[in-house]
Design a protein around this nucleic acid. Structure first.
Lengths: 125, 125
DNA sequence: CCATACTAGCGAAACCTTTCGCTAAGTCAA
DNA sequence: TTGACTTAGCGAAAGGTTTCGCTAGTATGG
């Protein structure tokens, strides 16, 4: 009974909800389709699909209804990362790390943070 | 005119081709669907779809035809990583790195390699 | 209370990926 | 050359996601 991976649009909606829990369909719609002319009912439909999948919770006791994410940001990120590691990096998380580090432009602070984490990981042995 | 992101099955096929360039449809099929009873024509069809998308090259001058990847492993990985960083980590590559490092189980050698890379990145400033 | 605007729900269309069945073409041993 | 077998090509089915049109319900200002 695992929760399925969020699809593209679903992830966009989740990102809104992580940042703005208890948002209404309208608010979500505006955030996701900022300047595009997508139909509002598309968002409503997606929310109902996501409710069925267990990706969001809905509060019916207020009007308009409000939504919150049913999956945490951390868990979702983790699951997406392991899927990618599995699919494209032959299971090697550190290959992915190398790739991400060299293609992104991490700041000094980022690097320091990563360094600290590595140290902690090395202690763990 | 950018090359589209490989889908799930496409990625499986690419992984075979990266490791075994010039494989035949049959070889690819056997590698991808090792013990599953998927139909061979599925693989053939996927290869034709991928040819249309520009993801593979086909050598018609030999029989049976052979295939090679038209996209490099590195570039594909890079593009998948940036897509994920964009989609789920709000553009922060280092968040992804942190996530990957703490959920995977990197070996001492992995950590050393990453450490070296970080040092190189810090020099670059 | 009524008109207007917004919210909610649903089926189906549109679109994409993956699968397969069927047929044609090519290969090879006898 | 022929029969058996493998490869190649294609349309369409199957399955999933995203989109929309339409209808009904709900709130709200006048």
């Amino acid at each position: 009974m695992s929760i399925s991976e969020p699809t593209d649009v679903e992830l966009k909606i989740l990102r809104v909800l992580w940042q703005q829990p208890g948002a209404t369909a309208r608010q979500i719609h505006n955030a996701v389709h900022a300047n595009q002319d997508k139909n509002y009912s598309t968002t409503v439909k997606m929310l109902s699909v996501m409710l069925d999948k267990g990706l969001v919770h809905r509060n019916d006791s207020v009007r308009p209804q409000t939504f919150t994410a049913a999956v945490t940001r951390r868990k979702t990120q983790k699951s997406l990362v392991s899927k990618l590691v599995e699919r494209a990096f032959d299971g090697s998380a550190s290959s992915l790390v190398m790739q991400a580090l060299s293609s992104g432009k991490p700041s000094k602070e980022d690097l320091q943070e990563i360094r600290d984490l590595i140290e902690k990981l090395e202690q763990r042995e």
